[in-house]
């Protein structure tokens, strides 16, 4: 029982980590809380579901399509909302509100299309399980964990071994200085949103397979926000730990206490944690600039 819950928590937590890393990427560069990330999660979930359900695609292909779709949607959102605001030198809070509206818009659109139904995948491709030393291990948990590790490795490669990664890291240290060094900021921001969208697509589509497909799945973005903050502001490794922590807390409170009070307990623990360590788990203290 305990080990099964542990595995469950880690695999769900790894998905939250992906969502949190995507959230954190955008936060690092522009210092904005990007709630349209939740819309991308929902888009990923629904795209893969529709591909399996109506087009009868195999699940892996559907996942790939969903991930690419969410990435492009994220880039499109940036192009349509953030860029006009940034061009006119508006403050970032307005993007916060615009992203919140995009989030609401996509949720409303998906509620309209799905007629508010909660659906689940028709095929049993990922829903089976196998037994290992007396433990029943759901296949989806293993798949989630493996995909999460692979995508984080890809992300590390892109961030630390490519030109765009270098540009993104430079921009997250100091946007203005990076611009003065000849980095095309529009390009960097678009790339960051693309990466955030891809990660949201992976997380969203797999969480849809594991749980269910419903229009409000974008609310996962609040958990991503939490993971990002608990792990430490502007710190990608911290976001990964934060995601794992939330996944574990949630699974264990659901299993041992009650699923209806689980969010309350989880978030209370996190807030207490933030009160004790305002700089986050990773412990890098960022001085407030005056």
């Amino acid at each position: 029982m305990f080990f099964q819950q542990l595995l469950n928590g880690i695999s769900v937590g790894s998905m939250y980590s992906l969502l949190a890393v995507g959230f954190s990427l955008v936060y690092n560069i522009l210092g904005i809380v990007n709630f349209s990330h939740g819309a991308m999660i929902a888009i990923g979930t629904y795209l893969s579901y529709w591909c399996v359900r109506y087009l009868r695609f195999p699940v892996p292909l559907a996942l790939v399509i969903a991930v690419i779709g969410a990435g492009l949607a994220s880039m499109g959102t940036e192009r349509a909302t953030l860029r006009p605001l940034r061009r006119r030198g508006q403050s970032s809070v307005f993007f916060f509100i615009a992203s919140l509206t995009v989030f609401n818009l996509v949720a409303a659109l998906l509620t309209y299309i799905s007629k508010g139904n909660i659906e689940s995948y028709p095929s049993a491709f990922l829903t089976g399980s196998f037994t290992f030393r007396g433990l029943m291990i759901p296949r989806i948990d293993v798949v989630m964990l493996v995909i999460a590790i692979l995508s984080l490795m890809c992300l590390t490669y892109v961030l630390f071994r490519t030109r765009i990664g270098l540009a993104i890291r430079a921009a997250s240290y100091n946007l203005k200085a990076a611009q003065l060094m000849g980095i095309n900021i529009d390009w960097v921001v678009a790339g960051t949103f693309l990466m955030a969208g891809l990660l949201a697509g992976i997380g969203g589509s797999l969480l849809g397979v594991k749980y269910a497909v419903y229009a409000d799945i974008g609310n996962m973005v609040f958990k991503a926000f939490f993971s990002c903050m608990v792990g430490g502001l502007g710190n990608l490794t911290g976001a990964i730990w934060g995601g794992l922590l939330i996944g574990l807390l949630e699974t264990f409170t659901c299993a041992y206490i009650s699923s209806s009070v689980s969010p309350a307990i989880t978030f209370t623990v996190l807030i207490v944690l933030l009160l004790l360590r305002p700089q986050g788990l990773s412990g890098r203290v960022t001085e407030e600039k005056i």
Binding site: F222, P263, A264, F267, T268, L270, L274
Partner: peptide, 14 residues
């Protein structure tokens, strides 16, 4: 802002 989100979830589950 995070704390208020947590509070929102908390009240809902209570």
């Amino acid at each position: 802002s995070l704390a208020t989100i947590a509070f929102g979830y908390g009240i809902e589950s209570i």
